[in-house]
Design a protein around this nucleic acid. Structure first.
Lengths: 216, 216
DNA sequence: TAGATTGTTAATCGATTAACAATC
DNA sequence: TAGATTGTTAATCGATTAACAATC
């Protein structure tokens, strides 16, 4: 049922990596534009915010259907719905956050995840001082309860917000518990089993890249 | 002098966006591998950590010279030097951090920037409670001093770590002071002059994208 | 109607990959 | 020497872009 429809789909296959990445960025722009009170948007406006070419945006969307109105643009609510359908991200997703330090607290209290239906289902820390305290409306659990919690709550996403020295241990623990997607906010390189995806967030790397284009 | 050499360079032009982005990721892997005590690395090892194809890596590097040894791999120190030369990121770069809340504190005390020669030259906040306190070994300055500080210290990079509601005001202030590269850690969409680059960090967007590939 | 913006085509460019000789 | 890994070629695939008819 998932992709069966009368639309012309490339195939019943998964999307290309690039398309999926771009669609999630459109989602972000649409979510924010909606919050700003807009109800429709043109491919050019999305292009301005994402630096993705407007033709590319129209082409990406038209692969899945005719969502826009010529001369008018796209209705934000309906496009949000369509993209969520395509990405199959309509439900709630539970994630486990490891590390209740400053970064962990910042992540837990940010609206950025909740806005996209992502729910921080548990926060862990090894520090007895932190265990039991509230962080972003969640009580911090003892790190030793991680395995059980991940299994019970069927968590497949883990966020690592601990110092680099401990990141590999946490990654091992998460992978061992059944987590399949890890967001690594430390600078450490992580070795994980082949069926686990690691996304390392690296502001410094992005910055070097941005600087290059500024300096030339 | 900058790109003049006897190497076969595509041209004296700047690099393609893709190449520059990949080179900065190699830099990250090399930096970390060095910290872990390694002194050489193969294109396959870099590929494992970055999910960039090994052939692509060799090809990227061989555009600029023959940095590797067949049968052995690349010397980490010398490759680090070569890539830094190519990206022209050998010096120190000063950045201004706006927002001394939990996220700002986490950024200021993270070694991630310092490791790549990026120096947080000033931290600003509007909260009188926070002004004067130390954050990551820097005293927090009054937000009203931002313009003067940016000009004095020749800062071209600003990091926004304030709530979404204030992000646009901060972006205006940064752009007005002469900052050309903005890292936005809020979920807000920012409107800036055309000569200013905005990089919005969005873990939720990346997560949706990662989830898609997990679910299919 | 006039203006705007989509959906789509066609042409180009860069990324990706496999394969393998060169050589450490 | 034998094994490993680079540097490079060639072939393929997907991304990018300009252009414009369709149509709201």
């Amino acid at each position: 049922m998932l992709q069966t429809s009368d639309r012309t789909e490339v195939s019943n296959d998964r999307l290309g990596v690039g398309v999926a990445a771009r669609l999630s960025r459109y989602l972000q722009v649409l979510t924010q534009s909606k919050k700003m009170g807009k109800d429709r948007i043109s491919s050019q406006e999305i292009a301005d915010y994402t630096n993705i070419n407007a033709t590319q945006i129209r082409r990406d969307l038209s692969t899945f259907g005719k969502f826009g109105k010529r001369g008018v643009g796209y209705n934000i609510d309906s496009l949000l719905g369509e993209i969520r359908k395509i990405l199959r991200t309509q439900g709630q997703h539970n994630v486990a956050l490891v590390g209740a330090g400053r970064l962990g607290q910042a992540i837990a209290s940010s609206p950025i995840f909740a806005e996209h239906g992502i729910n921080i289902a548990a926060v862990f820390d090894t520090d007895p001082e932190k265990v039991g305290r509230e962080v972003g409306s969640m009580p911090v659990s003892d790190y030793r309860q991680l395995r059980d919690a991940v299994r019970e709550k069927n968590i497949i996403v883990g966020v690592i917000a601990v110092p680099a020295d401990n990141a590999q241990d946490v990654a091992d623990e998460l992978a061992g518990s059944g987590v399949k997607i890890i967001f690594n906010y430390s600078e450490a390189l992580l070795d994980v089993p082949h069926d686990v995806q690691v996304h390392t967030s690296n502001p410094a790397v992005e910055l070097l890249h941005a600087l290059y284009f500024h300096l030339t």
